[in-house]
C-alpha cells in the first residue's frame, strides 16, 4: 500500500517535471538559437535542415557587427538612460509613496485616486503628449528625452505605498520621540526597512528601461543618442538582413540583462511572487 502510494507520487512528479522541462526548453530555445546563430556564417544560418551546433566559435560576427554600427555608443546611451530613469524614478517613488502613506494633506485620497485612475491609461496613448513635452522642453534628440517621461511611476509608487502602509505607526512615533524629522525618518527607517521591495522595484524598472523600444525610437533619431534596442533595429533596417550579424548584436544586448538576472534572480522572483507585479 505504502509503496504504491510512493510510486503514485513519483509518477505525478515525473509528469510535472517533464512538462516543466518542455516549458523551459520552449523558453530557452530562442536564446539558444540567437547565441549559436551569432557564431554561424551567413550560409550556415540559412541551411535546411538547420545546423544545431555551430562549427566554430570565432568572434568574427561580433567584430563585424561592432564595426558596422556604433554599438559601444548605443550601449553607453542605454546605460545612461537606465541609470537616469531608475535613479530619478526611485527617488520620486520613495517620496511619493511616503507622502501618500504617512503625511496628511488636504485632498490626499482624491489625488491618490486620480493617480491610480491614470494607471489605466496605456503608455501608447500618452506618447503624443510626451512627444510634445520633450519638444517644448527642447530636449528632443538628446539623452534627456529618454529620461524625462520616466522620472516617476504611479505603479511603483502604489506598490511601495502598500509596503509603507504595513510599517506600524508606532515606529513613526517612536522615531519622532527619538528626535527624528519626517525626512530623516524616511531615509533612516522606512527606506532600510523597504529594501527588499525597493530592490525589486529598481530591478524591474531597470529591465523595463533597458528593453524599451518604442519611446527611444520616437524621441531620438541621431545615431549618437540611440539606445541598444533601437540601435539594433536601425542596424537591421540600414544594413540589410544579415541574420548572423543581427544574432551577434542581439546577444551582446541581452548578455548584461542575463548577468543582472542571474545575480538578482531571487529578489526578482520573490518580488514578483509577493507583490503580483507585472514584468
Amino acid at each position: 500500500m505504502q509503496t504504491k502510494h510512493k510510486v503514485n507520487i513519483s509518477i505525478s512528479t515525473i509528469v510535472i517535471y517533464v512538462l516543466l522541462s518542455l516549458g523551459a526548453l520552449v523558453m530557452v530555445f530562442p536564446f539558444y538559437w540567437m547565441i549559436t546563430g551569432a557564431f554561424k556564417t551567413a550560409v550556415q544560418i540559412q541551411m535546411f535542415p538547420p545546423l544545431w551546433i555551430p562549427t566554430s566559435f570565432a568572434l568574427d560576427n561580433f567584430q563585424t557587427a561592432l564595426s558596422m554600427a556604433p554599438f559601444a555608443t548605443y550601449f553607453m546611451n542605454s546605460v545612461i538612460a537606465m541609470i537616469g530613469c531608475v535613479s530619478c524614478c526611485s527617488f520620486t517613488t520613495i517620496l511619493g509613496a511616503f507622502a501618500f502613506s504617512r503625511l496628511d494633506f488636504p485632498g490626499k485620497n482624491i489625488v491618490f485616486g486620480l493617480l491610480l485612475g491614470l494607471m489605466m491609461v496605456p503608455f501608447e496613448m500618452i506618447v503624443i503628449t510626451n512627444y510634445r513635452t520633450i519638444i517644448d522642453l527642447g530636449v528632443y534628440n538628446t539623452i534627456f528625452a529618454l529620461i524625462v517621461p520616466f522620472t516617476s511611476s504611479i505603479f511603483y509608487m502604489y506598490i511601495l505605498k502598500g509596503f509603507f502602509d504595513s510599517v506600524p505607526t508606532s515606529l513613526y512615533y517612536a522615531a519622532k520621540i527619538d528626535g527624528c524629522s519626517d525626512w530623516k525618518y524616511l531615509w533612516k527607517v522606512m527606506v532600510p526597512l523597504a529594501k527588499p521591495s525597493l530592490v525589486t522595484i529598481i530591478l524591474l524598472n531597470a529591465i523595463a528601461t533597458w528593453n524599451s523600444f518604442l519611446w527611444p525610437m520616437l524621441a531620438v533619431s541621431d545615431p549618437s543618442v540611440r539606445t541598444l534596442p533601437f540601435g539594433l533595429y536601425a542596424f537591421v533596417s540600414e544594413g540589410g538582413a544579415h541574420t548572423e550579424l543581427m544574432m551577434a548584436a542581439s546577444t551582446m544586448i541581452v548578455v548584461p540583462m542575463i548577468i543582472l538576472f542571474m545575480f538578482a534572480r531571487k529578489q526578482i522572483v520573490n518580488g514578483v511572487a509577493r507583490g503580483g507585479l507585472k514584468g
Binding site: 508606532s170 512615533y173 522615531a175 520621540i177 527619538d178 527607517v189 526597512l193
Partner: peptide, 20 residues
C-alpha cells in the same frame, strides 16, 4: 512643540524597536 523637540522618552506598549 512637536514631539521631536520635547525631549521626552516614551516606551510604547509594543516596544516599537526598529527591526532593521
Amino acid at each position: 512643540l512637536s514631539a521631536n523637540r520635547r525631549g521626552v522618552g516614551l516606551v510604547f506598549q509594543n516596544y516599537a524597536l526598529y527591526p532593521h
